[in-house]
């Protein structure tokens, strides 16, 4: 049995430093992440939250911050809905220089079997990471409404 996790890899024509900034700065995240702020001081042990249009949707604690190589935080859905009752999971970003590119590996793990949260994030991350790649390579984020993702209870 494979453990319940989501892994996503993408290659982006950028530098690890710019990608790190895009992952940790609300100025960037608002553009590729449905107007979501990524709020933290990015120090190990500090709180982390996602704030979408002024509402905190997800929150956690910074577990690792090694700019511009590795970032991880715990992740718990705190907005309304059933997934809010699931225990915190863990998000890890690994940034590796790959020639003139950066290989970005996102691992989201620590889900219980049958997690609804896992289903939701498996639909959400590809759209967010795709839009981030577009923004860094072309200067334009994608225009994909959250409702187009068919996430249960969203949109």
């Amino acid at each position: 049995m494979r453990k319940p996790e989501f892994v996503y890899v993408t290659y982006i024509e950028t530098t690890p430093e710019r990608l790190w900034e895009a992952l940790t700065s609300s100025e960037f995240s608002r553009r590729y992440w449905w107007n979501t702020d990524v709020v933290s001081d990015w120090k190990v042990g500090s709180p982390f939250s996602l704030v979408m249009d002024g509402t905190t949707t997800d929150a956690g604690i910074i577990l690792e911050a090694d700019p511009p190589r590795r970032l991880s935080y715990t992740f718990q859905h705190v907005a309304t809905g059933e997934p809010a009752r699931e225990p915190p999971s863990k998000v890890v970003f690994e940034l590796e220089r790959h020639g003139r590119l950066v290989k970005l590996t996102l691992t989201h793990e620590g889900f219980a079997d049958g997690s609804r949260m896992l289903d939701g994030i498996s639909k959400g991350w590809p759209a967010i990471m795709s839009s981030l790649k577009s923004l860094l390579e072309s200067g334009r984020a994608l225009d994909v409404p959250l409702a187009a993702l068919d996430i249960e209870g969203v949109g």
Binding site: A127, D143, V144, A148
Partner: peptide, 9 residues
Amino acid sequence: IEAAGDAVR
């Protein structure tokens, strides 16, 4: 291949 907003999934 599906349309998703102004993009393609």
